[in-house]
């Protein structure tokens, strides 16, 4: 039983890594209706800013804030300069443009910092708490707590603030929003900026474990996209729950089903995902969008 709980807890901790990035993907989708494949690369670039600052002796918390600010500006700028040209057009083209950004940003990070993975300091000490024989590391615990706080904050932003409402309106129908006096351009930039900031947070949280390198989030992005789609692309809660679900299912299958073992376990959550999406195409927590004619 103890082992079972440990496996589940480990799964949630792994899921937290995917969840952090999935939240950023959801935020962009909420704000602009797009899927941003460059989310991971933007997060890595911001994390590199924090990395360079900590190396220069700046305390981690200050470096993290600087990275967050950098990410916000980067996100807003990319939206204004690059993505803006593809909005309102064919979403396929916009998606391909973000894939282009992914390659470009990864290359820029590599040009400055090289491809070798470097250790990155953590907010939380190494070590664990032992709850009834189940070990939970401070790092995982910290990541999960911050993630839940970010998730709640996002949910509040979209559900209960004017800014959130305005952003939703813009994502849903930019032309009507503009006609009703919303500053569409600025709102889109804010949406991308916030998402990039959230990505920076994700990058800083997972870098101590993955080691920082330009490709740090490449594999995590696959899981994050899966989590975002499984949870329903427009639901922060859904993304986080789905990410935890993916982590737990993967671990349980690896630990308890001998045929699957450690080698095939990554396939299990994806198989489950396909089944769920067939039954609920809008995802676990997503809402069906009804278009009135």
């Amino acid at each position: 039983m103890q082992y079972f709980i440990q496996v589940v807890v480990d799964g949630v901790a792994t899921g937290a890594i995917y969840g952090a990035l999935a939240l950023a993907i959801v935020l962009v989708n909420r704000a602009t209706g797009l899927i941003n494949f460059a989310q991971g690369a933007m997060a890595v670039m911001a994390t590199f800013v924090a990395f360079a600052l900590t190396r220069a002796g700046v305390p981690l918390i200050a470096a993290a804030l600087a990275a967050f600010a950098f990410a916000f500006v980067l996100g807003a700028l990319l939206e204004r300069v690059v993505v803006r040209r593809f909005e309102g057009g064919d979403p396929d083209i916009a998606v391909v443009a973000t894939i282009g950004l992914l390659v470009l940003l990864t290359g820029i990070s590599a040009a400055f910092f090289g491809y070798e993975p470097h250790p990155f300091p953590s907010f939380f000490p190494l070590g664990t708490v032992n709850l009834f024989g189940v070990f939970l590391s401070f790092r995982s615990l910290g990541t999960i707590v911050i993630l839940v706080v970010a998730m709640v904050a996002l949910q509040v932003l979209f559900r209960s603030t004017k800014l959130g409402l305005a952003m939703r309106a813009v994502a849903d129908n930019p032309r009507s929003s503009a006609l009703s006096g919303l500053p569409v351009s600025r709102l889109l930039m804010i949406g991308w900026g916030l998402a990039a900031g959230l990505g920076a947070l994700a990058g800083i949280l997972v870098a101590p474990q993955l080691f920082i390198s330009p490709g740090m989030l490449d594999f995590a992005l696959v899981y994050a996209l899966a989590a975002a789609i499984l949870g329903g692309l427009d639901s922060p809660v859904g993304a986080v729950v789905a990410a935890a679900f993916i982590g737990v299912v993967e671990n349980l299958a690896g630990a308890y089903i001998d045929v699957i073992g450690d080698d095939l376990k990554i396939a299990v959550p994806f198989a489950v995902m396909i089944v769920i999406l067939i039954v609920r195409p809008q995802g676990l927590f997503g809402r069906k969008v009804v278009v009135r004619v």
Binding site: D10, A13, T14, I17, Q209, A220
Partner: peptide, 8 residues
């Protein structure tokens, strides 16, 4: 991305 579950 992590070998935590294997180590557990």
């Amino acid at each position: 991305t992590t070998l935590d579950s294997q180590v557990t």
